[in-house]
Design a binder for these strands. Structure first.
Length: 275
DNA sequence: ACCCATGTTCTTTG
DNA sequence: TCAAAGAACATGGG
């Protein structure tokens, strides 16, 4: 589930359990998630102390006392965890870092293996190499408008583009556009100043709310569109999928594909462009 | 068995 | 050169 709020939650977890500790060993259960040779990762990590954590968008950085950066990207299904004894390792732990003070192992969990572990010389070098834009939590309204307003591309793919602003994923973009009352297929250059302001405010609102709830979707406010997606298969009957708009109880949320991605919209809150 | 899925990156096509 | 669309990646879960 790793969009910006999840990754921020993982970062805080790592900050609590791993910062200040030295990596005693790197356990590789599945080298598929390594984007660097295993030997290079070991050479860079073992014996190094983790001195801090950082995040840009969906990328989590562990700063080592050597100055090198361990970069975690969680793909579509990545997660972070901790365990003490090998038999207790969470299912789908692909790589783990043994921490020498606590004796805990920091687990990089990823069923689908789209996540990657990398090394970088610096966060700035990584940011440049990956062409990451400003983090979605810190980008200014003016900068957002400057990036989007010249583009005739429809909004949703623009907001998913990590070089425009980093951290928004499929579900969050839908919720941001719903909160801002803008249709995902509006061209970037069609937004008014007022709409840009609403867009920026909705981004901050959705992201800070999600982080406050540690990305636990079930706890999100009832007027969030996320409750209309069929993600919560264990929800009680009275709190299962919300088929209708929280603001228009008679209007069904519509699902379509925009830019190849599943997209949810309230046809009343978010009028289709040209109509 | 079939379809869908939170992300990124590459290829193809216009 | 750029943008848009599609595919690929690897796998679990409904």
């Amino acid at each position: 589930m790793p969009e910006l709020p999840e990754v921020e939650t993982y970062r805080r977890f790592i900050d609590e359990i791993a910062v200040g500790q030295t990596i005693a060993a790197v356990i590789v259960n599945d080298a598929h998630v390594l984007a660097v040779p295993e030997a290079d990762l070991r050479a860079a990590a073992v014996g190094r102390r983790i001195v801090g954590t950082h995040r840009i968008g969906k990328n989590c950085f562990l700063e080592l006392d050597s100055g090198q950066i361990l970069v975690l990207h969680f793909g579509m299904t990545g997660d972070i965890g901790a365990y003490r004894d090998a038999p207790d390792a969470p299912r789908f732990t692909r790589v783990a870092f043994a921490l020498d003070d606590s004796g805990l192992n920091l687990a990089f969990i990823d069923p689908r293996k789209f996540g990657r572990i990398r090394l970088a010389v610096s966060i700035e070098a990584y940011r440049k190499a990956k062409k990451l834009g400003s983090d979605a939590l810190t980008i200014s309204a003016a900068a957002l408008q400057t990036k989007i307003s010249p583009r005739k591309t429809i909004l949703k793919p623009l907001l998913l583009d990590q070089s425009i602003t980093a951290g928004l994923g499929n579900w969050i973009v839908d919720d941001v556009l719903f909160q801002a009352k803008i249709h995902p297929e509006r061209p970037g250059n069609s937004l008014t100043d007022k709409e840009f302001k609403a867009l920026h405010e909705a981004m901050q609102h959705v992201l800070t709310t999600a982080i406050r709830h540690e990305a636990n979707y079930r706890e999100f406010p009832l007027d969030f569109l996320i409750h209309s997606r069929g993600w919560d298969t264990s929800a009680a009957p009275d709190q299962s999928v919300h088929e209708c708009c929280p603001h228009h109880s008679k209007t069904k949320i519509e699902k379509s594909y925009v830019g190849g991605r599943a997209t949810y919209v309230c046809p009343k809150c978010q009028p289709r462009p040209g109509l």
